[in-house]
Amino acid sequence: MAKFIHISDTKGRDANVLFTGFSKKSKIKYFTPNDEEVQTLRVLKTTLNGSYEKLIKQCGSEPELAKLLISQDPEIDFFQTGLFVNGSTKVFVNSDFQPCITVNLKELVYDVQGLLKEERTPKEMQGNILEEVAIKPSGKLFPKSEVYAKFVFSKKYQLSHVNGLTFDFLYQLSKELDEKKSLMLIGSGEKGVGPLVFQNGGKAYRAFLEGRIKENGYILILHLSNLELKSAITQ
């Protein structure tokens, strides 16, 4: 589904244009030996009352838990086990397995070696692609012949026009980048070097624009990356 993004070009002109992501669906379908198509559904195995965590607390030891499992089948809820699950919400429960009304969240930041570097309060990222101030090109160019070996582009969106004026706007931007054979860093903030967050609570990404031109057509791609191509083994 296409969504809007507020973007400016290298001349400082800005517009709301559409961006679209692509997801590949599997072509393979599975059938029973009787040629009946199968479906995959989420099924309830056991409720929190039948979970290992609750039962081990109740029994005190694994041998006691084993005895209970054999004698009473407490891990099976005969009214609910096997029901289809069509949606759920994440909740926090306390040591008595009751929902917590107040929860304090803390982030523990570890380095590559697994050493605790920092403790901090989590900060929810706010979406910044449709702000009053448009995201803008930073002016920093990365030649295609170099950038492909620097960053991992895990996500891509194609930008598209919504009318004749935005066609011209995006075509010119694509043409400029196509001629330079480079990707341009684009982002939030005054210099256009800040990360992009596509929705509240979403991940932050560095973004790069790539333009391609063929006759009267254009392709303008927003490449997103949160990982550099660095060796983890030598580190």
Partner: peptide, 29 residues
């Protein structure tokens, strides 16, 4: 991310099903 309750005890995460009352622990679905 670590969650603690008002007494400072570590909380577990669970899933609340759409019926609004059934809670499911890790691996319960």
């Amino acid at each position: 991310t670590v969650a603690t309750d008002s007494a400072g005890n570590t909380c577990l995460t669970a899933s609340l099903l759409n019926d609004g009352r059934t809670m499911v622990g890790s691996g319960g679905i």
